[in-house]
């Protein structure tokens, strides 16, 4: 079985207006090559679903590709706030729906379990329930008197996940934190995996339980070295502070941001790696 394709071909299957769940978490293992390719191919009106979102959401907002963001968090962690997310929230440039970490998990899990919602206590007593029209308050049907939050199923059109290793059938191994990725892979209608390296199936099996995504959930796989850059991909590389500094400087000024986006549109995934010094240059700065 061979599900290998290019990142360009994956993204070509995503129509304008699609909903996409991204794996990874803030500055960790974000499918950034995919986010860049969505910008390159000029996708519009996307709905982005993230648990802990970061640079992927910010880039797509900054490129005007987004209609709506479903999120528990969007930020750059130790580097501060996400500039385009902040601007878009403050100026109302897109629709935003604030969820929470577990409710995003529950929404994906509801789809996986083929039920319309899952109940939780998370969110009770907070203003998330006041601003998020997706949730409902329900009473315990067994009569305990407990009020609960009904979290509706999240059923994204696409999941994009970047992993350390995969085989050509789509089995995927994540060596650092798995974040919501195994859930996202199961909940989306179509799941695409990008990986640092494609390996033969017998090698992939050696990763044991780190092979946390099975091929039955995966529709396509692409080898994209440095595909999470400028976020990190443990244990292969850490996040690139120099690249983030450049991003944040560009985002602060419209002219520089336009030039930054031009460069994103010009560079293929291979040219992107060359632009950052090639494998040798990236390894020298980012390998632990």
């Amino acid at each position: 079985m061979d599900k290998v394709l290019t990142v360009e071909a994956m993204v070509a299957k995503v129509p304008d207006g699609a909903s996409i769940v991204f794996g990874g978490s803030s500055l960790s293992r974000k499918p950034m090559a995919v986010a860049r390719e969505l910008v390159r191919q000029g996708r519009r009106d996307l709905t982005l679903i993230v648990n802990i979102g970061g640079p992927e959401v910010d880039l797509l907002l900054g490129a005007g590709a987004v209609k709506k963001v479903v999120y528990a968090f969007v930020g750059f962690e130790i580097l501060g706030l996400a500039p385009h997310f902040r601007q878009a929230r403050q100026r109302g440039l897109a629709q935003f729906e604030e969820w929470t970490e577990y409710t995003v998990i529950a929404g994906l899990d509801a789809t996986i379990k083929a039920v319309p919602f899952l109940p939780t206590r998370a969110g009770l007593g907070t203003d998330v329930l006041a601003v998020n029209p997706a949730f409902r308050r329900i009473a315990d049907p067994f009569g305990s008197g407990q009020e609960l939050v009904a979290v509706p199923a999240l059923n994204p059109d696409f999941a994009f996940i970047h992993v350390n290793y995969a085989d050509c059938a789509g089995n995927a191994a994540i060596l650092g934190d798995t974040h919501i990725d195994p859930l996202a892979a199961k909940a989306a209608r179509t799941t695409f995996v990008t990986c640092e390296k494609l390996v033969p199936p017998e090698v992939l099996r050696r990763f044991g339980r780190d092979a946390s995504i099975l091929r039955i959930w995966v529709d396509g796989v692409a080898e994209v070295p440095w595909g999470a850059h400028p976020t990190g991909c443990a244990p292969q590389y850490r996040f690139d502070l120099d690249a983030f500094t450049q991003y944040l400087e560009a985002a602060a000024e419209p002219e520089r941001w336009a030039a930054y986006l031009d460069r994103v549109r010009q560079l293929s995934p291979e040219e992107y790696v060359d632009h950052w010094g090639g494998t040798a240059g990236l390894q020298a700065r980012l390998r632990v």
Binding site: I52, Y71, A72, F73, V74, G75, L81, A82, F85, R86, R89, Q90, R91, G92, E98, T100, E101, Y102, T103, R121, A122, G123, L124, G125, T126, D127, V128, V131
Partner: peptide
């Protein structure tokens, strides 16, 4: 940790509630 000012159009948009609602209900 969500926003300074009204949520719909914040003066400063921060990061979103993250996992605090889970902590503060359990």
């Amino acid at each position: 940790i969500t926003a300074i000012g009204p949520w719909e159009r914040p003066k400063v948009a921060l990061v979103g509630s993250r996992g605090i609602p889970e902590d503060s209900s359990h």
